[in-house]
Simulated scan of single mutants.
Amino acid sequence: MASFAVAFSHFAILLLTAVSLGSSLSLDYYDKTCPSADFIVTKAVRNAAYKDKTVPAALLRMHFHDCFIRGCDASVLLNSVGNNKAEKDGPANLSLHSFFVIDDAKKELESYCPGVVSCADILAMAARDAVVLSGGPTWDVPKGRKDGRTSKASETIQLPSPAFNISQLQQSFSQRGLSLDDLVALSGAHTLGFAHCSSFEGRIRNFSPASNVDPAMNPSFAGSLRNMCPVNNKAKNAGANMDTSPTTFDNNYYRLILQKKGLFSADQALLNFPKTKNLVNEFASSKEAFTRAFVNSMIKMSSITGGQEIRKNCRAVN
Rank of each mutant, 00 (worst) to 15 (best):
D52V: 10
I102Y: 05
S172V: 01
I204T: 00
L263H: 04
N252A: 12
D103R: 00
L178K: 00
N237F: 11
A37K: 05
D121I: 03
A269I: 04
R61K: 15
A189S: 15
P56Q: 05
V131K: 02
S179A: 01
G177F: 04
F99W: 08
N84T: 09
S161C: 13
S220E: 15
L77H: 08
S151D: 11
S95M: 10
R70N: 15
V116R: 00
G306A: 00
V41C: 12
F99V: 04
V132E: 15
A92P: 04
S297R: 00
D267T: 01
P215R: 04
L192S: 09
L123I: 12
G177T: 02
A124C: 09
L263M: 09
A49W: 13
A153N: 11
N93Q: 14
I69G: 06
F11A: 01
D214P: 03
I157V: 15
F273T: 03
S36M: 14
N281A: 10
G144H: 06
P91G: 11
D89S: 10
K32P: 12
E201F: 00
R203P: 06
D214H: 02
A130M: 08
A74D: 13
S174P: 10
A86M: 06
C119E: 06
T156E: 15
R205A: 07
A316G: 12
L78C: 08
F264I: 03
K88E: 06
D214N: 05
K152Y: 15
